Simulated scan of single mutants.
Amino acid sequence: MGNVAGDNRPVIVFDLGGTWWRLAILTPSGVLADHDRHPAVTKAGTGSNTATLRELMVQFLLAQTRRLLEIHPGVVDVGISIGATTNGHTGQILASAPLWGDSADPFDLRATLRENEPRTRWWVVNDVTSLALAITSRPEVRAMGVKIVAAVTVSSGIAARTIDVESGEVVLDRVHGIQGEIGHLPAVVSAPLSADLPVCDCGAVGHVSAIAAGKAIERQLAQLASILGADATTEPAPLARLCAALEHNNPHATAFLDSVTAPLARALLYLLTFDPRIDHVFLSGGVVDTLADHYMNSLYRCLEADGLYLVSTHQPTVFRDRISRLESDGLDPLRGAGLFARRQSLPATARPGGRNH
């Protein structure tokens, strides 16, 4: 795992996303043991206010940690990957549209947990940062010879992180401690989507996540159900119905998919333009996993329609060469949370690369 792993003690790990809350023990050998998952407790799902949702999250973390400590009494560290914008310099959670909607009151989750359960060392990290750490620990990625990669997740939210493969360093805004919140960039809406700009979970109008994130896609599919065709109505979920329609070469489904990948494609185009150090971009998340090659081919079509100035002219395959779907079991944020906890528990002088919240 290179030098991002720190020591190899077992770590209790959590991944708190907008759909599932997962937990496990990351063993010294890197295996995830006692893996479990629970439906996420969110504003969209419950209608509860932010204070209540945060309290429910804290109680969930405490209860599950205490349960695992009974089974694994020697564990000292708990790593929490969370689908929220965090200040990497302080560890404070700044906002989470998938979890808490438009609330933007800072929340020191780590301090709250430490006060309630002082037996363990608590570490909180953004979920895309934890994903990036897990990616850079993969032998096949390190064997690629790449120096800087970007991890992009497309699930209930959208975000990116660029990371130095060797050191594990994620460069952050010096003042605010954030990086890669591309889901909250403004997006252009194209047909067949409504001309009315959709509202993002964060409360703003017309963000990339409001069009291209998983729940946004499902909402749009509900309004445009006719594009899926009558033969696909037996599938259990909107994304599965869309996938079935794409498998049947439904042209309306293809046009719809291109319209929801276009905002992300434009964001990635800007990312590659402004940061030429990026050797490769890895995409993951529920939307990418469900739609698989259909999603990637749509993204490539949108990117190639614009092109990377002067680069695409000489290397027409540049996007297919530099952007790929991460083959994953969906548990990499758990692994990354464990890697983060291990490196943060080291003395400051022994940590490679610096902070990575």
Rank of each mutant, 00 (worst) to 15 (best):
321 D>N: 08
178 I>T: 13
147 K>L: 10
277 R>G: 07
65 T>W: 09
225 A>T: 07
11 V>I: 06
206 G>S: 07
219 R>W: 03
151 A>E: 02
278 I>V: 12
250 N>F: 08
330 G>Y: 11
214 G>F: 08
335 R>H: 11
180 G>F: 00
156 S>T: 15
345 S>M: 08
185 L>T: 11
41 V>L: 12
192 P>M: 05
8 N>L: 03
77 D>K: 09
27 T>W: 02
259 S>N: 11
153 T>A: 08
314 H>M: 10
207 H>K: 00
37 R>Q: 15
49 N>S: 08
108 D>P: 10
199 V>Y: 02
345 S>I: 04
45 G>N: 01
109 L>G: 06
21 W>H: 13
258 D>E: 12
149 V>F: 00
85 T>N: 09
52 T>E: 13
306 D>Y: 08
180 G>K: 00
182 I>N: 05
226 S>A: 14
42 T>G: 08
28 P>T: 01
283 L>C: 08
257 L>H: 11
216 A>T: 03
183 G>P: 11
271 L>Y: 05
26 L>T: 01
229 G>R: 10
312 S>V: 01
312 S>K: 03
209 S>K: 01
25 I>D: 11
36 D>Q: 14
94 L>Y: 04
318 V>Y: 11
199 V>M: 07
215 K>T: 15
65 T>L: 13
119 R>V: 01
153 T>M: 02
259 S>K: 09
277 R>Y: 12
201 D>G: 14
265 A>M: 02
291 L>D: 05
275 D>V: 15
86 T>F: 00
176 H>N: 13
290 T>R: 14
255 A>R: 12
160 A>G: 03
132 A>I: 15
317 T>F: 03
332 D>I: 02
86 T>D: 01
123 W>Y: 14
137 S>G: 09
67 R>F: 11
32 L>I: 05
301 R>I: 08
17 G>M: 04
278 I>A: 06
279 D>S: 12
312 S>T: 14
160 A>C: 13
353 G>H: 02
79 G>P: 14
93 I>F: 04
75 V>W: 04
336 G>H: 09
232 A>S: 15
99 L>P: 12
261 T>L: 04
206 G>I: 03
349 T>F: 06
306 D>S: 14
60 F>W: 04
122 W>V: 12
307 G>R: 10
197 L>C: 03
217 I>R: 07
69 L>E: 09
101 G>N: 06
353 G>L: 03
310 L>K: 02
345 S>L: 04
173 D>W: 09
113 L>C: 05
253 A>W: 07
133 L>G: 05
22 R>K: 14
156 S>Y: 06
15 D>N: 10
159 A>S: 15
120 T>A: 13
265 A>G: 12
326 L>F: 09
245 A>E: 09
142 R>T: 02
311 V>M: 02
2 G>D: 11
314 H>A: 10
293 D>F: 11
133 L>P: 10
47 G>S: 02
26 L>S: 06
72 H>V: 15
289 D>N: 15
221 L>V: 01
